[in-house]
Computed example of a mutant assay.
Amino acid sequence: MASISNKIIVLCCCFVSTTFVWGQNGKHFVFPEYQEGQIVYKNKKVNKVELNYNKATEEMVYTGSDGKKMALHPIDQIDTIYFEKRSFIPSGNSFEEVLLSGKYPLYASYHCRLSIGAQNIGYGSSSTTAIDNISSLNTGGEMYQLKLPENYKVEPYTIYTIEINGKRERFRRIKEVIKIFPERKKEIMNFQKKNKLKNDNEGIIQLIQYISSL
């Protein structure tokens, strides 16, 4: 199957109007740009390279010496990847960010749903098609670029993991934290209301820090 980039070239050469032009979203990456990261391996070896985490492919992508974007593999010998103020550790075949250590270690794994917007299908309506097989669209490394075609819809979401006495609990929203700490329901609800916490990293971190202090 021809790659997306090849299709774009063919359409442009034929002077056919199309929505497959490179957009400027970058929502399928954690960082808006590739940036220097420090890879620390379990054998203490350290390597510095430009990196970014791809939420769609769930891979840490690096910039090679030739400028080509490639997924970082294998990752089982990696201990931690450090950016300026953030750190990521391997988790299965992907990575998760370390948000908190201490009494209740907190981690975030980043994902996104992709769908392709179709042309108008009549009666003023349009349709979208969910993308289930990301690898089929990445044969030429298109998913490693910061810009995707404009008709690609990117819906990022985060799954949080908290460790409690060695047991890992997953959640996505503050209201789910109440189920993990039912005995702290009143305190959690009051703290959320008082501080107007949102379901993002900042809000989740504030809440877990508060619970840790109780």
Rank of each mutant, 00 (worst) to 15 (best):
M1N: 06
A2S: 10
A2P: 09
A2R: 14
S3R: 05
S3Y: 03
I4C: 01
I4P: 00
S5W: 00
N6M: 05
K7H: 12
V10M: 13
S17V: 13
T18Q: 14
T19I: 05
T19Q: 08
Q24T: 09
G26W: 05
K27I: 00
K27L: 00
H28F: 06
F29T: 04
F29E: 02
P32L: 05
Q35E: 14
G37E: 07
I39Y: 03
I39P: 02
K42R: 12
N43G: 04
K44V: 05
K45F: 08
V46I: 15
K48Q: 12
E50F: 12
E50S: 02
L51N: 08
L51V: 06
N52R: 12
K55A: 03
T57I: 07
E59M: 10
V61S: 06
Y62C: 07
D66M: 06
G67F: 03
G67K: 10
G67W: 05
K68F: 03
K68Q: 11
K69P: 11
A71C: 09
L72I: 09
H73W: 06
I75G: 11
I75L: 07
D76T: 13
T80P: 01
I81T: 04
R86T: 15
S91W: 09
S91Y: 14
N93F: 13
F95N: 02
V98E: 09
V98R: 11
L99R: 03
G102E: 08
P105D: 08
A108H: 05
H111P: 00
L114P: 01
L114K: 01
S115E: 11
S115K: 07
I116V: 15
N120Q: 15
I121R: 12
G124H: 12
S126H: 15
S127Y: 04
T128H: 11
T129L: 08
A130H: 08
I131T: 07
D132T: 12
N133K: 11
I134F: 10
I134K: 14
L137M: 13
L137H: 12
L137T: 01
N138L: 02
G140T: 13
G141W: 05
E142C: 05
E142G: 02
M143H: 01
K147D: 15
L148N: 09
L148C: 10
P149R: 02
P149A: 02
N151R: 10
Y152A: 00
K153T: 00
V154W: 01
E155K: 09
Y157I: 09
Y157L: 11
T158G: 06
T158Y: 03
I159T: 14
I159N: 10
Y160P: 07
Y160M: 03
T161L: 10
G166Y: 05
K167P: 04
R168P: 00
F171M: 08
R173F: 14
R173Q: 08
R173M: 06
I174F: 05
I174S: 09
K175M: 09
E176C: 06
I178K: 14
K179Q: 10
I180H: 13
E183F: 11
R184E: 12
K186N: 13
I188F: 08
Q192H: 14
Q192F: 05
Q192D: 09
K193I: 10
N195S: 03
K196N: 14
L197F: 03
L197P: 11
K198A: 15
K198I: 03
E202G: 05
E202N: 13
G203P: 00
G203H: 00
L207Y: 04
I208A: 01
I208V: 07
Q209L: 12
Y210W: 07
S212N: 07
L214W: 10
